[in-house]
């Protein structure tokens, strides 16, 4: 436990000092809010292309419209940003060559990999909270008034969706480890985004683990708690696979 604490402190220090992390955080919070705000203004102005893209959402107003637009952007753009951040957390050790310094240490590499994932998850939860607060402020600025119970529930769903979205990017950590670099993680993230979007469009619904959180949050179709929890199987499996891959890691290429 002590070694996990030390590894957590080391990973937190790297993350806090990293320009990549700061940029992705800014993109996730401000970028998504600005993008959603832009879409909202375009829809209000009657831009037909945007209205067509929003589909059934175009009929909504106020908090439901704002939160749903943000959720739509988060489920695709947010997933990409989370995947890039996670690919960097793992891939930078190979790219910078610091991976050799993580061998022959009294802290197991599987512990270091777990620490990376825990720090990622903690950062994701903080980012989700910051994004939710930012959207809340945006709603107030737009004159929607203090959120009522229904709007608060939507904001809560946005928070949960953002955390689930971060979890869905966990396969990028495994891919980065297996591929010993950033690109395999980023490619995997793009693959997840595509599969999730296809899942939503194809109407596979809640049984598609990569799409279930977005479908649930945006209420496109009914999604049961079981279906939502099933979407955690992929991140859980990839979490274990990543720590095992770090434990068995060989610098043979």
């Amino acid at each position: 436990m002590n070694t996990l604490r030390i590894a957590l402190a080391a990973e937190a220090r790297k993350a806090a000092a990293s320009r990549v992390f700061r940029t992705v955080t800014l993109l996730l919070i401000v970028g998504i809010a600005v993008l959603a705000g832009g879409l909202l203004f375009a829809a209000r102005a009657g831009n037909e292309e945007i209205l067509a893209k929003l589909g059934a959402l175009a009929d909504e107003t106020g908090w439901p419209l704002l939160t749903n637009i943000v959720m739509q952007v988060t489920s695709a753009g947010g997933l990409a940003a989370f995947g890039i951040a996670l690919s960097w957390i793992f891939g930078r050790e190979f790219v910078d060559g610091t991976i050799t310094s993580l061998f022959a240490l009294p802290i197991r590499r599987s512990t270091i990999a777990s620490a990376k994932l825990i720090i990622y998850l903690a950062w994701s939860a903080l980012t989700a909270a910051a994004l939710t607060l930012t959207v809340g402020l945006l709603g107030l600025i737009l004159g929607y008034g203090p959120p009522d119970r229904a709007a608060a529930a939507l904001l809560g769903q946005l928070f949960v969706l953002t955390v689930f979205t971060a979890l869905l990017a966990v396969p990028a950590a495994w891919a980065t480890t297996l591929g010993r670099g950033l690109l395999p993680g980023i490619a995997t993230t793009i693959g997840i985004v595509v599969i999730a979007q296809v899942g939503v469009v194809a109407g596979i619904g809640g049984w598609m683990p990569l799409a279930a959180p977005a479908i649930w949050a945006m209420r496109l179709e009914p999604v049961s708690t079981v279906q939502l929890l099933l979407s955690l199987i992929i991140p859980a499996f990839c979490w274990l696979a990543t720590t095992r891959a770090w434990s068995r890691l060989e610098l043979d290429r």
Partner: peptide, 27 residues
């Protein structure tokens, strides 16, 4: 203690921060 190929030098950390981290990782 070892140096194999790349040194323990995280680019985003200062010299002191790198050394403090290396010391902690060695318990």
């Amino acid at each position: 203690g070892h140096v194999i190929e790349a040194p323990f030098a995280y680019p985003e950390l200062s010299v002191r921060a790198n050394l403090e981290m290396a010391a902690r990782l060695h318990l």
